[in-house]
Every structure is written in C-alpha cells, then in structure tokens.
Simulated assay, not measured.
Amino acid sequence: MPQTIYRCTGLVFATAIVWAGLWAVGLSAAALFAALVVAAALAIKGLAPGRIPRPLGMLAQGILAVSIGFMIDTDTLAALGSSWLPVVGVSVVTLVMSVGAGSLLALHKDVDALTGPLSMIAGGAQGLVAVARELGGDERIVAVVQYVRVGLIIVTMPLVATVLFGAGSSAAVHAADAGSPWYVDLLVVAGCIAVGIGFAKVVRMPAPATLGPLIASGALELSGWIDTVSAPTILLPIAFVLIGWQAGLAFTPASVRAVGRVLPWAVLLIVVVGVLCALMGLLLTHLTGISLLEGYLATTPGGLSAVLAVSAASGANVTFVAAVQVVRLVIMLFAAPFGAKAFVALRSRRARKAEREKVPV
C-alpha cells in the first residue's frame, strides 16, 4: 500500500510539473499531453501505480462530453443558415475519408482493423482516446496517432492560413457573456453525466459515458432552459489528465516499439487526410459562398481551439467556422462508437459462421 501511495504521488507531481512547463510554452491541451507522457514514462519504467479505475475514466469521458454538448447551442446552429446541408455533407465525406485512411493504417502489422480507423478519425481526439479501450481498440496507438495529428495541425495551420489564404490579423474582441454561479454549473454537469449515462445504459448505447452525457447536455443547451451554464473551468483539465493517464499507463516497452514502427505510415496518412480536408474546404467555399480562408479553417481536421484562435485573429467568420467544426465533431463522436459496435458485431458473426463451417456434418 505505501508503495502505491508513493507512486500515485509521484505521478501527480510529475504530471503537474510537466503540465506547467507545456502550458508555459503555450501548447494546446497541455494537461493531456503532460499526463500521457508522464504516465507512459512511468509505466515503461515499471514505476506506475496501476490502471485508472473505470469509474474515474467514465467521469472523465462524461466531463468532456458535457463540455462538447454545451457547444451545441441555437446560435451556433443558426450560423449555418441554409448552408447546413453542404456542411453535413462535407463532414460525412471527411468521416469516410478518415475511416478509409484508418483502414490503410490497419494494413500495418501492429495495428488492428478497429484501432486504425479510431486513430485516424479527424476530430474529437480527446473523446476518441477516452473511449478507445471501451470500443475494443488499442488506446495507446489511438492516443499517439491522434495527438500527432493535432500537433501537426496546430503547427502548420497558421502558416497555411497566412501563406496560401492570406490570413491577416484583427483586433476584434468579443465580450464574454455573464455565466451562472460555479456551483450551479457543477450541479448541471453532474446531472447531465448521471442522467446521460443512465439513459445510455438503459437503451444500450455504445460508449455510454460519452454519448449519454453528450445527448443530455446538448438537449439541455438547445432547450434554452439554462442558457448561461458551462462546464466549470477546472473540470476540463482534470478530465484531460485522467484521459492522459488512462492511455499512458497502458504503455509497455513492446507497445512503444510498435508505435514507433507505425508512426511514419501514420504521419503520411495524416498529411494526405489534411490535404483532402483542405479540398473539402474549397468545395464548401463553392457551395456556400464563404471565403477560401473560412472554408479552409472550417474543414481543418482538428485542433478546434487553435482553429478558432486563427479565425478570430484573421477576422474570419468565427461563428460559422465554429458551427462547422462542432457539427463535424459531434458527427465523429457519434459515428465512432456505433461504427465500432457494428464492426465488432459483423466480425463476431463472421467468426461464428467460420466456426460452423469447420464443424463436420
């Protein structure tokens, strides 16, 4: 018991130190990166305290899902106007391209047929990492590939937006709406998680800790009953840390070698998907009449906070860009669990059929 306490304390302190360093240099999702790296390093050295308890993992999924659900408000959806059909169409095409790239990744001997698509789905990296194990994928490969994708996007997007699409700078500042008291936010978040998970389990949804709270919070936001509620600021970093620990503590020396072998192939596919998404941005521009810059930013495959920052700094239509990104994010997070469930069911049926064919009559 004392050894476990010492290891838990070391994990917490090391994560806090690395988190502070990454935050100081302005890295996006610094909490998750820090937790993932520290937990993986300790796990490989045999100094990890053990896996994250499942209830804590579900709590992290729920917090993240509620935060996303609160983005689905009437103002955001209204920004789409008559462009909603092209936006949904482009999002679905992006999903198909991502799954296709994931299937190519799965041709690698170290990646299975479910882990490949989960690793390459363009959007919702934190959510996909959080539910990868629950869906039957290898969360270690999913985590690394997803965050390599996010990192590449964050590094290259401002450069591409400036050089190719002429993004400038804007001093526009938007006043934040007054929010509700923190304890009201906390109670609403807790209620959405509890009710959402309960509902999802009753109707047997895949990934209930993600889809249930997402539906509950999205429905509450769209109802307009509590317009000023948002997830308390401290909750999301805590969820990121738990998700990072969950993936990082599963690493072994063998899995690190496997990830190293997969990465070059994965980076190539990430670049291909990024180029295809940029072409989708051109198509969206043609269909909706938005600018080339807005089309590019709206269809960039991930890095939501960085996308919105560049949009605001360049004077682009931030509301429209955010609406497209949120629509795609929600589509990805819903498609992944249901797609994984269908894939597993199909694989099981094929296995049973093959087994029956082996039995002599």
Rank of each mutant, 00 (worst) to 15 (best):
I5L: 08
Y6R: 13
G10H: 01
G10V: 09
T15D: 00
A16G: 15
A16W: 10
A24N: 14
G26M: 06
S28C: 05
A29D: 15
G46Y: 11
L47R: 07
A48N: 11
Q61L: 12
L64M: 10
A65P: 06
D75Y: 03
D75K: 05
L77C: 02
A78S: 13
A78L: 15
A79Y: 04
L85D: 15
V90P: 01
V99E: 06
A101L: 12
L104N: 10
L104H: 02
K109F: 10
G124V: 07
A125V: 03
Q126D: 13
R133L: 07
G136E: 04
G137W: 03
D138I: 06
Y147M: 03
V148I: 13
T156F: 13
A190T: 14
I193N: 00
G196E: 08
V203K: 15
P208V: 00
I215P: 03
G218N: 07
L220N: 03
T228M: 14
L236C: 02
V241A: 08
W245G: 07
W245M: 07
L249E: 14
T252G: 07
V262F: 10
L263F: 13
P264K: 11
L268Y: 04
L269N: 08
I270E: 10
I270T: 06
I290L: 13
T300K: 04
G303Q: 02
G303R: 04
L304D: 00
S305A: 15
A306Y: 03
V310P: 00
S314Q: 03
V318E: 06
V324W: 01
L329F: 15
M332L: 14
V344H: 01
V344N: 02
